[in-house]
Design a protein around this nucleic acid. Structure first.
Lengths: 255, 255
DNA sequence: ACTTGACCCTCACGTGAGGTGAGGCCGGAG
DNA sequence: CTCCGGCCTCACCTCACGTGAGGGTCAAGT
């Protein structure tokens, strides 16, 4: 009944490789309960249970000696599972943090600010502490690119960013309202939204004349990454936005 | 102006160790733009930017050669960030899955049901071997495949993507038609669909021989994320697809 | 001018978690 | 009795660095 399995059978059953089983035996993390006369490793059900815990811990990135330590004290399977749950929770936290960091960076890049180490600092994550950042700012202060971007965005506070976001959303919503009302992109409402969009970027990010604004609008429909941003809000919005921006640019006095 | 930093300064600023910088230089992943007369490595702002992307990819568990591949094709920072976002999303998915598995197992154990290998199987990760291994391999496994895919997809335009989508849908529909007609997965129609599927991936994404295609097919039934994609289209489609792909692979001349 | 100490360089070997053979025993089927 | 697949150990390879050893470099202090 307590069928004893050889390495190959365990490997087949669990997906762990034979070499891994050998390795675990070598380092004493999981020694099979028995050997055949010929020296074959024979694993019992209890061994498999232990292996399951090992694999679970390993999936969480725990080093094997640490796993051995965790298994050494006599705690129950439930204890182990609870610990693993906690570990998964913290990993989920850090990953969602990372996702947020990438999102905000993307958002900033999408709205036109050039790539600066400041943006990327967020991605550096652990180890890129505030003091590190301050240090970098000090030493690297002479760089033209850094100074340029620092001048633009470094003065924005958290509330500034919130304001920027709500203002940007408002501009987008103006487009949506105009479109939903069936108004053409060349309507006064749509063009007003386009002008608001341009002014928004100009006040907060960089100089944006109507011609460059056209280019930006074209990109909104040409580049799928930008397109989806708007299409997710409302289907057809990207194209509508482009037309409205062009219409708004058309009515400007030529210089 | 473009202040050039030595290894120590970069290390201080970014939290990456000096040895790591040496290593990246050795393997050609990040070679400093300049050296001082004394042979000191001198990193520019552009170097730091590249380093940031490298670090970000590395945090996601991507092997360095794969990172080199991803950086080799000329894609923008936004492309990289977007890819990283996707990757974080899938990692979040698998982690939440794991959390669920642990939760249900805990619940069962708490309510008195003894630990059965079945419970533990869940922790192993539902077909651990196929999923984990094949998935990692699939994600950026040989790193050649990933780099290849990354290099290709970064150049696709919006119309390309539309074409890819309709072509892919057509392949899927061929499977559905064959299945609905009651034809076995080994029928000429199903195998033709399988071959079309393989060619679709090969032309648009990466080289895919019949053996690797098998692995992909196995993942379609082993990985819930993929399974639902197909099951939502038609119940039983995932399994049918797998059988058809295997049948198609079987009839290929052995090399 | 000289020393000090922090920094940099290049070897070069160590580590963790296995992968990948080589060469040789075992065990059951034909 | 032979064969094939599975198992054994031994032993070196890999990846992403860590950790010295031995020695040059640079700015400051004496």
């Amino acid at each position: 009944m307590d069928a004893e399995l050889t390495v190959g059978q365990v490997a087949q059953a669990t997906g762990v490789t034979v070499r891994t089983l050998h390795h675990y035996d070598e380092i004493g993390l999981l020694e099979p309960s028995a050997r055949s006369r010929a020296g074959y490793r024979l694993y019992t059900g209890a061994d498999l249970e232990r292996l399951a815990v090992v694999v679970a811990y390993r999936r969480l990135g725990m080093p094997l000696p640490a796993i051995a330590g965790a298994l050494a004290d006599e705690s129950t399977l439930i204890d182990h599972l609870q610990r693993q749950r906690d570990c998964v929770a913290t990993q989920l936290d850090t990953l969602t943090d990372l996702a947020h960091a990438i999102d905000t960076t993307l958002e900033r890049l999408m709205t036109g600010t050039p790539a600066t180490p400041d943006d990327l600092a967020e991605i550096f994550g652990e180890g890129y502490s505030e003091e590190h950042q301050a240090e970098a700012r000090e030493r690297w202060g002479e760089s033209a690119a850094y100074a340029q971007s620092a001048a633009r965005t470094s003065r924005y506070t958290k509330t500034d960013w919130e304001k920027i976001k709500t203002e940007g959303d408002a501009a987008t919503q103006a487009f949506v309202r105009a479109m939903d009302s069936g108004l053409p992109p060349s309507s006064a409402e749509a063009m007003a939204a386009a002008e608001a969009h341009r002014r928004h970027i100009e006040t907060w990010f960089y100089d944006l004349d109507h011609d460059v604004h056209r280019g930006l609008a074209d990109m909104y429909v040409a580049d799928p990454r930008f397109t989806t941003t708007y299409e997710d809000i409302a289907p057809g919005l990207a194209a509508y936005l482009r037309e409205a921006i062009h219409a708004n640019a058309d009515r400007q006095p030529a210089r």
